[in-house]
Amino acid sequence: MLQITNLHVRLKDGREILKGIDLTVAAGEVHAIMGPNGSGKSTLAAVLAGRDGYEITEGSVTYQGRDLLAMPADERAREGVFLAFQYPVEIPGVNNMYFLRAALNAGRRHRGEPELDAGQFLRAVRGKLKLLEISEDLMQRAVNVGFSGGEKKRNEIFQMAMLEPRLAILDETDSGLDIDALRLVARGVNELRAPDRAIVLITHYQRLLDYVEPDRVHVLQGGRIVESGDKSLAAELERRGYGAADAA
């Protein structure tokens, strides 16, 4: 599904953030990428999603056999890459439902499927809203405007559920959530687990992994993956902290 090889990334100001990442995620797997603040986790997510402002100096990223880095951000999304934002953006004046239908239909057009009309779309929306316990009137507001922190995060997972990506990257979706919201987010993620789908969870804490069981856990530190293991690594990190991983 996703193969990252020796990826080096620097910012426009020249600072090198990622210093040779190697990571392979197969279809059906859930990988957790953990690490302290400033280790490059969010940069990795942004580079995979196609945000501007980063320079790839070395390495490659292959997604479903194609060069992911050669695709513009919107094409990546239509090809099935989804990024749940750490800080979802507020967009005044753009209605949530309208926005989501535009996104869904852009993907459908891309795949040669017929677009959903307003009625079909609404039926699809209602089922997923229920799953994430999001009220319908939230959908009639402008994108993320006036949403609480928890509502914004749930809205990200709701969008993910609607768009049914092949590769979902969740950038610290668990941060700032209370335990109820965390459970809902986990429910949304678990619901999406499928043999033809890969999920990358980027997180600072082990908390989310109590609810979403990863197949692999990686520790990102100083722009490199310094340690990988199975789910028990997360619990171990929680015990000993990232400082010890550095030494390992």
Binding site: A49, A73, D74, P88, V89, L100, A103, H110, V143, Q159
Partner: peptide
């Protein structure tokens, strides 16, 4: 970027 990251051209 947010809109594009959802697939909107």
């Amino acid at each position: 970027f947010y809109l594009r990251a959802r697939g909107i051209p």
